[in-house]
Write a protein that binds this DNA or RNA. Structure first.
Length: 556
RNA sequence: GCGCUUGUAGCUCAGUGGAUAGAGCGCAGCCCUGCGGAGGCUGAGGCCGUGGGUUCGAGUCCCACCAAGCGCACCA
């Protein structure tokens, strides 16, 4: 499957062989850990197994390492096995095998890096899910980039992925939104009316109302107020969702499903969920309201499902929504990506699953931490209801979609981050984003030159590639499949940012060291081989960029 | 007060319990008579928040403390 697995198998075989001939004592092995040494002096892979066996075997770790190393035969892909200092066994890859990987990559094309570890299991990634009462701002954008990249990675790893946006189109905030649009509409008609106290004050509501007035005229003035509020509100909601979708598309984020909260009620899911949670004994009625008795599951407090007014809370919808995900739509695993302001709800959601009889381990809630904005020395805070907000749209206009995605992806989601808009702009020619993309443009440029000169290199023989820079580039390229697997396993797509930087760096170094297209006739075999290498590098770099949702430009 | 997250180079941040802690930016130097210099190479710069503990081994795991962010509604 992966190289590490192959090496782990070789290690197990080596230990067994050593045990069989009596150079190592019998005994169970711990799980084999194969990792990549940071110094290349220590080979391509290493295991710490001897250190872990020292106690059980009552031998010096280095002694064990030597005995294991001498029992592992070289193979088509392992060039050399040796014992090292405290108690490692190191492995160096066979160079002929390495250069052969260039052909493997060329053959795999765009599917290089794909894996089957997901085995087609159904996974849902639900992300963004911003209330459609306002535009997407910078904090949401972080979650959007994280979610879309994670979905791409999971898909590459062989999962059956559904990308979903949950639309809160129900409840008190929605009513406030409806009424706010209605009031702005009346104002646009010249009427002197006030926004409700908690109404949405943003300019976008005013503009929305004006647009509705232009498209629909004054027809809402002649109907009962309740009806007018509902009709205008629905039109407004629709326009908001359209805008949200368009904004997200600007940064390369799309969804398979836009799931409306309203449908939970219309489709009966809400009733079924409430029935099930009550049947399982986690509901009590008191103080005129209906409560989820989460304290019996170890939570700090109980939570209201149905208010004394008879209105369900958003939390009740969430219960129904998650029942729907697991019980009706059959997701093996669900990943919810929430903002930091919702992290207090994670354990409560897990408790809900327990109450519904669903294994809580099937849900992973990822928290995307706060983003603070800075313009030079000025700290900016984002408040949704104030007029002053930095939206996704502003951000993309400022720094561009690719820089925006890369910037978010180069940090792990659980650490708070600072986004300096000035810096992101200033740096633009000298930014890691451009460094990576320039690598791709350079490759494209080499290909253009080869085409101009009419060089046909389908028969290039990659076995002539021996230069350290060539081999270093190949070593970096073949890390992608393992990276995809580990990112899918750990749900950590942000490693792509560093990987793509390292890959680009390996390419730039190769480019500096090795002339690709040579005019000397005697260099033709090397030219052909390097052109094949360059094509393969392009495949891997383009794939890395595409997983990150970034463009792979032909020229810049 | 309780809970979650975060404290690593001047700045922004990586770092699957292992072998000399990394990158980008910034700073100081160097490299083009051939494929795009948006490039390559070298250097300075670190009690990994503090103190304990577990381990053969801790930036990484556990505990306490300090600091920052976010939560702790019959709002979402």
């Amino acid at each position: 499957m992966s190289l590490k697995t192959d090496i782990a198998e070789a290690i197990i075989a080596g230990v067994s062989a050593a045990q069989a001939k009596g150079s190592l004592p019998a005994g169970e092995l711990p799980p084999i850990v194969v990792d990549r040494p940071q110094s290349e002096d220590n080979g391509d892979f290493a295991t710490n197994l001897p250190l872990r066996l020292a106690r059980a075997f009552r031998l010096e770790p280095f002694e064990i390492a030597q005995r294991i190393a001498e029992s592992i035969p070289t193979s088509t892909f392992i060039e050399r096995v040796w014992a090292a200092k405290p108690g490692f066994v190191n492995f160096a890859l066979n160079e002929a095998w390495l250069t052969g990987q260039v052909e493997a990559i060329l053959q795999a094309k765009d599917s290089y890096g794909n894996s089957q570890v997901g085995a087609g299991r159904k996974v849902q990634v639900e992300f963004v899910s911003v209330n459609p009462t306002g535009p997407i701002h910078v904090g949401h954008t972080r979650g959007a980039v994280l979610g879309s990249t994670l979905a791409s990675v999971l898909s590459a790893a062989g999962y059956d992925v559904t990308r979903e946006y949950y639309v809160n189109d129900h409840g008190t905030q929605m009513e406030l939104f409806y009424r706010s649009v209605y009031v702005r509409y009346l104002q646009a008609q010249g009427q002197d009316v006030e926004l409700p106290a908690q109404g949405y004050k943003g300019d976008y509501i005013t503009e929305l109302a004006k647009l509705i007035q232009q498209e629909e005229g004054d027809r809402f003035l002649n109907m009962p107020e309740d009806e007018a509020v509902t009709d205008i509100g629905e039109i407004g909601l629709d326009k908001m969702l359209t805008n949200i979708g368009a904004d997200l598309e600007q940064v390369g984020v799309t969804f398979d499903v836009w799931y409306k909260e309203h449908d939970l009620f219309d489709g009966g899911r809400y009733g079924e969920a409430m029935g099930l949670i009550a049947k399982n004994g986690y509901v009590s009625d008191r103080e005129g309201a209906r409560w989820f008795t989460s304290t019996s599951l170890g939570e700090d407090k109980d939570n209201v499902l149905v208010r004394s007014s008879g209105q369900p809370t958003y939390f009740a919808s969430d219960v129904a929504y998650h029942l729907d995900k697991f019980a009706y739509r059959g997701f093996d695993h669900v990943i919810d990506i929430w903002g930091a302001d919702h992290q207090g709800h994670v354990s409560r959601m897990k408790a809900v699953l327990q109450a519904l009889g669903i294994d809580p381990n099937r849900l992973t809630v990822m928290i995307s931490q706060m983003v603070t904005l800075r313009r030079g020395d000025e700290q900016l805070k984002i408040s949704k209801r104030s007029g002053d907000l930095i939206t996704l749209r502003d951000l993309v206009e400022d720094v561009g979609a690719d820089a925006c995605r890369y910037f978010f992806l180069s940090r792990s989601p659980e650490s708070q981050m600072e986004f300096d808009l000035d810096l992101a702009k200033e740096q633009s020619s000298n930014n890691p984003v451009y460094y990576v993309q320039y690598g791709h443009a350079r490759i494209a440029s080499i290909s253009r030159l080869a085409a101009e000169r009419g060089i046909d290199y389908v028969d290039g023989d990659v076995s002539v590639l021996k230069h350290p820079a060539e081999l270093a580039l190949i070593r970096k390229m073949i890390q992608l499949p393992g990276l995809v697997e580990s990112m899918a396993e750990d749900l950590e797509p942000h490693h792509l940012a560093r990987y793509s930087l390292d890959l680009a760096s390996a390419f730039h170094w190769f480019y500096q060291q090795c002339r690709v297209v040579s005019s000397e006739p005697s260099d033709l075999p090397m030219t052909k081989a390097r052109l094949r290498l360059v094509d393969a590098a392009r495949i891997v770099l383009a794939r890395s960029l595409s997983l990150m949702g970034m463009a792979a430009p032909e020229q810049m």
